[in-house]
Amino acid sequence: MRWNPQTSKFAAFLTKKDIDLRSNTKMLYLGAASGSTASHLSKILADGVIYAVEFSWKPMRKLVELSKREKNIIPLFFDANRPEEYAPYVEMVDFIYQDIAQKNQVEIANKNAEIFLARGGVLLLMLKTRSIDAVEETKKIASAEIKRLDEKFNIIDVLKLDPFYKDHVAILANYDHP
């Protein structure tokens, strides 16, 4: 199946920014849902691994089936708010991709980076905004919030995902934790 920027924020992001996704990347994917984006990523990260966290049982069921077909997807049925619970299963990663529409999404990203994101690693955060008009404001607030919660982050880029997603911005940041 074609990777469609209308149905995957990651694909929409790639139409905006060219990032270097090495095939041996270790990725922590928070909010993997039933795995439609993960299935595409698993082909790109052919020699890497995707730790796919999802806490809702219905999509999890499909994610489990998908992980049986794709050798490098590890399904983790956990709440991304509680990274210490899946820490025994997840090694350090180079990339955290987060697509969770929750109020405390920035806090979740930070908690997980603190535990799993290697030094020099990348965070790609799909941030839900209140409205299109609020995008500019959201950009500012979000980058400030990320810095505030963890000054080890350097914001590389903040991008709108229009026309595909009008209520999301993508935040790309670099992590500098020893």
Binding site: V49, M60, L63, V64, K71
Partner: peptide
């Protein structure tokens, strides 16, 4: 990866 996956799948299934 293979063993870890087996472990995680069985854990997920139990919780499901």
């Amino acid at each position: 990866i293979e063993l870890l996956k087996e472990e995680c799948i069985s854990l997920a299934k139990t919780k499901i």
